[in-house]
């Protein structure tokens, strides 16, 4: 590991100042489950590492505010997967958090780290896309919010600017029930990085939101507002055609050794079909509970 200086600021302002001063030479450290690996293998060699874990404003936690669920950027997967509100309202996110790495990894891995690392395979990304998350950013010119579908650029790259960091991820609390599910393909059942991720959400108005990852440079969101996909009685051809169009943005790389492009595309379709079925069934169950 190359030598670097380690900063552990106590305030957000100090962290932002450090990040602004060092620009690309600086790296934020949250749980470290991505960063430390890249420092060790030498693929990242920052001169400054800025640890977020002592920043008062970045205490981990999940709270409700103004019709939104606000998840602190440093909240770990274990806590997300266990949170009763998330499990009830954003089931796919709870499921996604629950499959990240292993128990030990989930005890360290933060939600902020997962989206900032911006791996195309990031497990929480599809669920955040489906649930319409908003990324809350602090930077030299104050705070800004951007919808998650404007966040991911390509592998490892987001729209985060110089001196900026993520402070929270917000989920608008849906007015009506929604059924959602996170599915993924891995090479084994034990912890693994996904070769396809997919989240499907169906709401009471029949709108289906599909988001998928690991089949292109960034996760993709596709929405069916026609209600056809979620309608079991719709003509099968219509549903299949619609699904094809929604999955059309998948462009898996041939260079990956985790799965070949044709297998990924085939599995994307399998997951999408299964995802729609499960989400629809969950929606029905949720409506039944009301």
């Amino acid at each position: 590991m190359h030598a670097f200086s380690y900063e552990r600021p106590a305030t957000l302002a100090r962290a932002v100042a450090l990040l602004e001063a060092h620009g690309p030479e600086a790296r934020v450290l949250a749980g470290g489950t991505d960063l430390i690996i890249r420092l060790r293998d030498g693929s990242l060699a920052p001169t400054v590492v800025v640890d977020l874990k002592r920043i008062a404003e970045l205490e981990p936690g999940i709270r409700e505010a103004d019709g939104r669920l606000v998840i602190g950027a440093t909240t770990v997967m274990t806590d997300i997967a266990a949170d009763a509100r998330i499990r009830r309202r954003f089931e796919a996110l709870a499921e996604a958090a629950a499959v990240v790495g292993s128990v030990q990894i989930r005890n360290r891995a933060t939600l902020g780290g997962n989206i900032c690392n911006a791996s195309p395979a990031a497990d929480t990304a599809p669920a955040l896309l489906v649930h319409g998350a908003v990324v809350v950013i602090a930077g030299p010119s104050g705070s800004r919010r951007i919808p998650i579908d404007g966040w991911f650029v390509r592998s490892g790259v987001t729209t985060l600017g110089r001196g900026e960091l993520v402070t929270a991820i917000e989920l608008p609390l849906p007015a009506a029930p929604m059924g959602s599910v996170h599915l993924r393909r891995t090479r084994r059942r034990g912890h693994d990085l996904a070769s396809v991720t997919l989240c499907c959400g169906v709401d009471a108005s029949g709108v289906t939101r599909l988001a998928y990852g690991s089949v292109g440079p960034r996760p993709v969101l596709a929405v069916d507002a026609t209600g056809v996909l979620a309608d079991r009685d719709a003509a099968p051809d219509a549903r299949t055609g619609l699904l094809e169009r929604m999955l059309a943005e998948a462009t898996p790389s041939a260079r990956s050794m985790r799965a070949s492009p044709d297998y990924r595309l085939a599995m994307l379709r399998v997951l999408a079909r299964r995802g729609v079925d499960i989400a629809t069934a969950r929606l029905a169950a949720a409506e039944g509970r009301r």
Partner: peptide, 24 residues
């Protein structure tokens, strides 16, 4: 093992060389 054209092991290490876990 997965090799590239130069005989370099591509899946060197635990991330891309998978062994069974308790879940498997």
């Amino acid at each position: 093992y997965i090799f590239d054209e130069s005989g370099r092991i591509r899946n060197l290490g635990a991330i891309d060389y998978r062994i069974p876990t308790s879940l498997d």
